[in-house]
């Protein structure tokens, strides 16, 4: 008995094409859904290990600046890298004057890694300008922060936030007062302030009595060793150059510490 021969009829080409397109679209949809779910899950892991901002330390630096040094610890416990990570911070003083900015990046943070980013913010503390008040007025600084990053290759995200940070001035309520010139040709100068900064002031305070025409009539120095939170108030007689009149001039002071000289706001002499 012979075995019958069956013929298998292949489905038509257009039918196969349409079916292939539908199957392909379903595969693409499933892959996109799986990828998105995995990215969302991976990104959600960040909430278990949020960015940590370490404590800041303040110090004087070159070019009449104060440096706020800190660090930001970023962890990426997820599976996908965080790309194009950028951070920008801008600091304004209490009256809205621009003080300085910090920028970082762009950097990448691979999955399952932790990185520590140094944050060094330089604030000008010259005797004039927006930063002058940092020396002599404790205040609330306005810190604006922007951050951008791309999660899972496809999802750029950014955050912008404003924060208020209290600032302790190293020469808070600085007061320079002059008395009446003494018969022996000296001028009593009293300097007082409170150190509200997080650093101890060790060094000296050099003070000069400057006449209205800019000529120095005399100078003196104070030794400083003022811990955080302590007040300073001392009076010293500054010997004046014979014939030099301080009236209408000013008292110019500067804080001198190892390697740095920080000018303080001048005080007018009536």
């Amino acid at each position: 008995m012979s075995t019958p021969v069956y013929t298998y009829r292949r489905s038509p080409a257009l039918y196969r094409l349409a079916r292939a397109l539908r199957v392909l679209s379903a595969v693409v949809l499933v892959l996109l859904i799986l990828f998105t779910v995995s990215v969302v899950y991976s990104t959600a892991q960040l909430s278990h290990d949020p960015p940590q901002v370490g404590s800041f330390s303040a110090g004087f630096d070159t070019n009449a600046t104060m440096i706020l040094a800190g660090s930001l610890t970023l962890s990426n416990p997820g599976y996908y890298p965080i790309d194009g990570l950028t951070l920008v911070a801008k600091v304004d003083n209490a009256t809205g004057g621009y003080l300085g900015a910090f920028a970082f990046g762009p950097e990448s943070l691979s999955g399952q890694t932790t990185d520590q980013i140094p944050i060094n913010l330089y604030l000008p503390v010259s005797a004039t300008g927006a930063g002058a008040s940092l020396l002599t007025h404790s205040q609330i600084l306005q810190v604006a922060l922007w951050g951008n990053a791309t999660f899972g290759y496809l999802f750029p995200a950014g955050i912008a936030l404003n924060q208020s940070r209290s600032w302790g001035a190293p020469f808070d309520h600085l007061n320079v007062s002059v008395g009446e010139p003494t018969p022996n040709g000296s001028l009593p100068v009293t300097i007082s302030f409170e150190n509200q900064a997080s650093l101890a002031e060790q060094g000296s305070l050099s003070t000069a009595v400057v006449a209205s025409d800019g000529i120095s009539c005399g100078s003196a120095g104070w030794t400083l060793n003022v811990a955080t939170g302590q007040s300073f108030s001392q009076t010293q007689d500054i010997a004046l150059t014979p014939g030099c009149s301080p009236a209408g001039g000013s008292v110019v002071s500067a804080y001198v510490t190892t390697g740095y000289t920080v000018p303080l706001p001048p005080e007018a002499i009536p």
Binding site: L21, R22, S25, L29, F155, A157, I159, A160, L161
Partner: peptide
């Protein structure tokens, strides 16, 4: 007072492949 921006443009562009097919 934090504002968050999230962009999913590229994902949606890829998603357009599905109805296109």
């Amino acid at each position: 007072n934090a504002t968050l921006h999230v962009q999913y443009t590229e994902l949606i562009e890829l998603l357009l492949i599905v109805p296109a097919l």
